[in-house]
């Protein structure tokens, strides 16, 4: 069956193959720019709008790092909440409860830059203030979602 040759200039984020390629490119020492999906990193990373620059993590994970990790079958980009030896706890900035757990070998990359849809470039920082505000997150996020989205 003939299907016309096609060349398209956009590859949406998604499956295992996609992340396998991200992993390969990072291992080659390159930086990778992707547009994350989901609201779990609000308010810093907005679904489908902001781009992030990833690089390979060449040091142990630290609290506050935003990491892309493979946890089971899922690919998650969340902030490091705690590190104890090889046990890393992740939590999305936009999440109120849920946490994920992984080891250093599950880490694919580190977010080094957030490129806002308007073109502004933000260094991700360590999210300390946001962490301290955790008890109030649900209210701040609710207001944020009502006002901004």
């Amino acid at each position: 069956m003939y299907s016309a040759p096609q060349s398209s200039d956009r590859k949406t984020i998604g499956d295992d193959n996609y992340f396998a390629l991200v992993d390969d490119l990072l291992k080659e020492g390159r930086e990778v720019v992707i547009t994350p999906k989901g609201n779990s990193m609000l308010p810093f990373i907005r679904n489908g709008r902001d781009e992030v620059v990833l690089t390979r993590l060449d040091r142990p994970a630290e609290i506050g790092d935003i990491l892309l990790a493979k946890i089971g079958d899922r690919f998650i980009m969340h902030r490091v909440f705690a590190v104890e030896g090889d046990s890393i706890t992740l939590m999305g900035d936009g999440n109120v409860y849920g946490k994920e757990y992984c080891g250093h070998s599950d880490i694919i990359g580190l977010v080094t830059e957030i490129r806002k849809a308007g073109g502004r470039i933000v260094k991700p920082g360590k999210g300390k203030a946001w962490r301290l505000l955790r008890p109030f997150r649900r209210y701040i996020l609710a207001i944020y979602k009502r006002v901004i989205r």
Partner: peptide, 20 residues
């Protein structure tokens, strides 16, 4: 040789185009 790969600007080919 490109040190930063932007997945949003990536060019993808289907199998026919890749064959060419």
């Amino acid at each position: 040789g490109i040190s930063q790969i932007n997945f949003n600007k990536m060019i993808s080919l289907n199998s026919t185009a890749a064959f060419l």
